[in-house]
């Protein structure tokens, strides 16, 4: 495999990082390892659900809806390899940012190109997409990355629709902001 073109040195503010094709190929290879090791591709959103279910059971072990939930899902929630994968993803993001020099947030402050998202927008958006991901039984990793590679019909329905809706809404919002700004 070819190496990175160069390693980002210190103060590489304009550096866009390694080629997206290289990163994509590496993620693809990582997913092949997952298919072999776990007999399942990389998936992230399921771990959020099982973690929430474990917390709910811990806080209110006798609540009726927790028991109904465990009955409705085939297997009871567990803190399994997928949950460890999410913890690993946090650590991996941390390690990659640190080894390049500091937090991403500090780099953001230097650049300050685009307005940052408000906490409310971030949390509300996160809540909407997670509910959607659990309705559809997968997210950008479980469906768009792994399911499409498996040729799952469900993933090929979910992925274009999800990106299409997101794209439409962002473009509409931007158009509305522009018109608002001109007046």
């Amino acid at each position: 495999m070819s190496r990175h073109r160069h390693h980002a040195g210190s103060g590489a503010a304009i550096d866009r990082g390694p080629s997206p094709y290289l990163i994509g190929a590496a993620i693809g290879l990582l997913n092949i390892c997952a298919f072999a090791a776990f007999r399942k591709g990389i998936g992230v959103s399921g771990a959020y659900e099982s973690s929430a279910a474990l917390v709910a059971r811990r806080l209110a072990p006798d609540a009726a809806h927790v028991n109904d939930y465990v009955k409705a899902r085939k297997d009871p929630p567990k803190f399994n390899w997928e949950s460890w994968l999410v913890l690993g993803t946090i650590l991996g993001g941390m390690a990659a940012a640190r080894t390049r020099g500091g937090h991403d947030a500090e780099v953001d402050d230097r650049l300050s190109a685009e307005p940052k998202r408000s906490p409310l927008a971030s949390a509300a958006g996160g809540a909407m997409l997670m509910f959607g991901a659990r309705m559809a039984d997968g997210c950008t990793s479980g469906h768009a990355l792994s399911g499409t590679a498996q040729g799952a019909g469900s993933s090929w329905l979910f992925t274009p629709l999800m990106f299409g809706v997101g794209s439409l809404l962002v473009r509409r919002a931007r158009g509305a902001r522009r018109r608002g700004g001109e007046v």
Binding site: V44, S45, I90, G93, G125, M130, F131, A136, G166
Partner: peptide, 23 residues
């Protein structure tokens, strides 16, 4: 799938993240 994809797309547009990239 359809309901989930619509909600997911809207949430991703609003937050700029998905479950993996947010982590």
């Amino acid at each position: 799938l359809v309901g989930g994809a619509v909600l997911f797309g809207a949430g991703m547009a609003l937050s700029g993240y998905c479950p993996g990239t947010a982590a």
